[in-house]
């Protein structure tokens, strides 16, 4: 690292702080099209500017070094807020790259200046890449959190009657969701002491062999624990698909609507109650 160049840069950056910062804000502000308030942008960029100057004065222009820790943590914060607010990666990275643009006219004079500019540009490239990486990571975090939420939201188990629980399925069934549905359903059977379960697939957009396989698994597991399972909410179109694909539900009762399934379950319960002899044993 050439000390001469970083010194020259530092002088320039310190001496013309107010001027450069104002230009930087203006360039960034234009690219963000007013979606971040001027005051907030000014604060962000001011902090970043000072941190960069400080880091360069401490340890030169090596962007991945220890002395850039403060700058990086500021960038992490910046890209996280940008990612959450729905900005594109370009709009996020431009906050860094705009500084190059601002410095360019100042450092185009002599050969030494040009070299200093190139060094600084490399530093800014590094920081810009870091910003984009951080942006992507934040996005991924958001996505995984959302899919987790979706998994939890879309698999409720409700008690329909004494001894009858229902699972209204919404969305496509994959193996991960089947696992969650099965776990919740079986636990609900034990907790509510229910011998009947109704799986309602009104909200399942399409039933293919894969989905049918998962449904069957759930029913078999419930049966193994001693509960009867009914599949309800089969729309006409789905019934046709099921037959066309040759899917066999075996002796699992299937009904068109949840109401039919509930009536079926209640009749079974009635039958069992009527047959129950008096006395404990």
């Amino acid at each position: 690292m050439d000390n001469e160049e970083s010194k020259r840069l530092l002088e320039l950056l310190t001496a013309r702080r107010a001027d450069l910062l104002a230009q930087w804000e203006e360039t960034v502000g234009a690219s963000l099209r007013g979606r971040v308030s001027t005051a907030e942008l000014g604060r962000e960029l001011g902090e970043l500017y000072d941190a960069v100057v400080d880091a360069v004065s401490k340890g030169g222009l090596a962007g991945r070094g220890e002395h850039f820790a403060v700058v990086r943590s500021l960038l992490v914060e910046l890209s996280r807020t940008r990612a959450r607010q729905g900005f594109t990666p370009t709009e996020t990275a431009v906050s860094i790259f705009a500084l190059k643009e601002v410095l360019e006219p100042l450092l185009a004079g002599s050969v030494e200046d040009a070299r200093a500019y190139l060094q600084f540009a490399r530093l800014l490239d590094d920081l810009g890449l870091f910003t984009v990486e951080e942006y992507a990571r934040t996005r991924e975090e958001i996505i995984s959190a959302q899919s987790q939420q979706l998994l939890e939201l879309s698999t409720p188990v409700v008690k329909l009657w004494d001894g009858v629980v229902g699972v209204p399925l919404v969305g496509t069934l994959d193996s991960a969701r089947t696992q969650v549905v099965m776990e919740k359903l079986l636990q609900a059977l034990v907790d509510s002491n229910s011998a009947h379960a109704i799986i309602d697939i009104t909200g399942v957009p399409a039933v293919d062999t894969q989905v049918a396989q998962h449904l069957l698994k759930t029913v078999v597991a419930a049966r193994m624990m001693g509960a009867e399972c009914t599949i309800s909410g089969i729309r006409p179109q789905i019934a046709q698909t099921i037959v066309a694909l040759g899917i066999e539900f075996g002796d699992i009762p299937t009904k068109a609507t949840l109401a039919d399934a509930l009536r079926h379950a209640l009749m079974e319960i009635d039958k069992a109650a009527a047959a129950r002899p008096a006395g404990l044993l």
């Binding site: 099965m182 059977l189 002491n193 624990m225």
Partner: peptide
């Protein structure tokens, strides 16, 4: 039978064919 046990059996492809099951002792009796 516990829920976890039922799930494991299904994953293993075992179905306990020919064996009646009930949720608990009361229902079994």
């Amino acid at each position: 039978m516990r829920p976890a046990v039922a799930m494991t059996l299904v994953e293993l492809g075992l179905s306990l064919g020919g064996v009646r099951t009930a949720l608990n002792l009361e229902l079994g009796l």
